[in-house]
Nucleic acid binder design. Structure first.
Lengths: 203, 203
DNA sequence: GCCACATCAGACTGATCGTTCTCCCTCTGT
DNA sequence: ACAGAGGGAGAACGATCAGTCTGATGTGGC
C-alpha cells in the first residue's frame, strides 16, 4: 500500500508529449487566426497527433479553447506582460507607463497577433458562453494587475484607474490590429497626462 | 427617345421590397451576432425571402457583408454618431467631447451591439480579405470625422490627435462589450485631460 | 389575354465542421 | 513473454454551411 501505483500516477498526471504538442499547436493557431477560423483538422494535422488522441485529452473543441485561454493567461499575461513590465521598471508609476513601452515592441513585432481575450469575447458574443466568460475573466485578471500597481502607487480609486488604463491598452491593441504600429506611443502619451492628473491617496 | 425605358430604370434602381428586407435583416443579425455566426439560412428565414432572391441581389455572402458594412457606415457613423454629436454641441472641442456622451447613452441601451467595424476586423483576420479592408476603411472614415473636428478646433497634428481619440473610443467600446456600462464616462474623463494638454496651432 | 420578370418554395450539391469508431502499432512494467 | 495502455492512421457520421437548380406563383406593361 505504501508504494504509489505507477498507472494511477501516469493517469493523474498525463504524459506531456502528445498533450503538449496539441496545446502548443492550438496556441499558435488560435492566437493568430482566431477560434472559429481554426478547425480541429488543422490542429490535428499541424501537431502530428491522431484525432482520437486529441479527443482523449480534451473532451471537445470548447475544452481545448478553454485550455488555450488558460495557457494564454500564463504565457502572455503573467510571463510576458507582467514579467517585462517588472523588468523594465521598479517604481509602480513607472511600471504603469512601461506597459505601453512593452506594447510598443509588441506592436512592431512581425507576428503581432492581437489580444486573444478580446478576440474570443467578440467571437463568442453570447455572454453566457463559457468561452466568453473565460475571456472576460482573464481580461479582469489583467485589470487586477493594473489595480495592484495603482494601489502601490498610492492612487485613489485604484479600480476606476485600472479600468481607465485598460481602455487605453485595449484601444491601442485594436489600433495596432488596424495597422497603426505607433498606437502604443500614442496611448502612452495619453496615459502620461492621465497619470499626472490622477488624484493621489492622502498619506 | 425622351421617355426613360421603365425596364432599364427598374434594373438600375432595384425595387426596394425584397432587397430592402434582406438588407434590414442582415443588418440586425450581422450587427448583433457577427458575420461567421450568422448563416444565409438565418437571413433567408427571418427576412421571408426566397434563397434565390437573395443570391440574385447579392452574388455571395461576402457581397452581402460588404453591403451591410456600407449601410452600417451610413446608419451608425453618419446618421447616428455624427448626427447626435452635431446635435449635442456646436463648438468643435465640445463636439469632440460629446462623442463620449453619445457613447454613454449607447453603452446603457439594452441592445448594445458593439462596433461592427472592429468586429469584422477581428473576424476576418487576414488583412487581404476584402471584408477586413472594408472594416479598416470605415474605421478610417470615423477618424476622418475626428480629424475634421480637430482641424476646426485649431489643434496641431490633427491626424495624430484623431488616432489618439480613436484609441479612447475603441477602448471604451471593448470595455462596454465586457459589461462596463460606464466605460464612456471613464474615456470622457481621460479625453478631457488629453484635450486640455493638447497643443494648439498658432493662429 | 399575354409576355417578361420578380419572387417564392424547396430539393439538392459539395465542402467543411466537430465528433466517433475501428484497427494496428509501439511502448512499458512485471 | 505478455498484458494493457497510449498513440497513430484513417474511415465514417451527422450536422451545417454557401451556393445552385427547378418549378410554381404572382404581377405589371403591352
Amino acid at each position: 500500500m505504501g508504494a504509489a501505483d505507477p498507472s494511477l500516477v501516469g493517469g493523474a498526471v498525463p504524459r506531456p508529449k502528445a498533450r503538449e504538442r496539441i496545446l502548443a499547436t492550438a496556441y499558435e493557431l488560435f492566437a493568430h487566426r482566431g477560434i472559429q477560423a481554426v478547425g480541429i483538422d488543422a490542429i490535428v494535422e499541424q501537431s502530428g497527433v491522431a484525432r482520437q488522441t486529441l479527443y482523449r485529452h480534451f473532451n471537445s473543441k470548447q475544452a481545448l479553447v478553454l485550455a488555450f485561454l488558460e495557457r494564454r493567461e500564463q504565457l502572455w499575461t503573467q510571463d510576458w506582460l507582467r514579467g517585462e513590465v517588472e523588468r523594465a521598471a521598479t517604481e509602480p508609476e513607472a511600471r504603469l507607463l512601461a506597459i505601453f513601452d512593452v506594447f510598443d515592441g509588441w506592436f512592431h513585432s512581425s507576428d503581432f497577433e492581437g489580444c486573444s481575450f478580446i478576440n474570443v469575447l467578440l467571437e463568442a458574443a453570447d455572454p453566457a458562453d463559457p468561452i466568453h466568460r473565460a475571456g472576460a475573466a482573464y481580461l479582469a485578471g489583467i485589470r487586477e494587475f493594473i489595480k495592484a500597481l495603482a494601489e502601490e502607487a498610492g492612487l485613489s480609486d485604484p479600480d476606476g484607474f485600472a479600468r481607465k488604463w485598460h481602455i487605453l491598452m485595449k484601444g491601442s491593441i485594436i489600433s495596432a490590429g488596424e495597422g497603426d504600429c505607433d498606437a502604443a506611443r500614442r496611448a502612452r502619451a495619453m496615459a502620461a497626462v492621465v497619470l499626472r492628473e490622477q488624484a493621489r491617496r492622502p498619506d
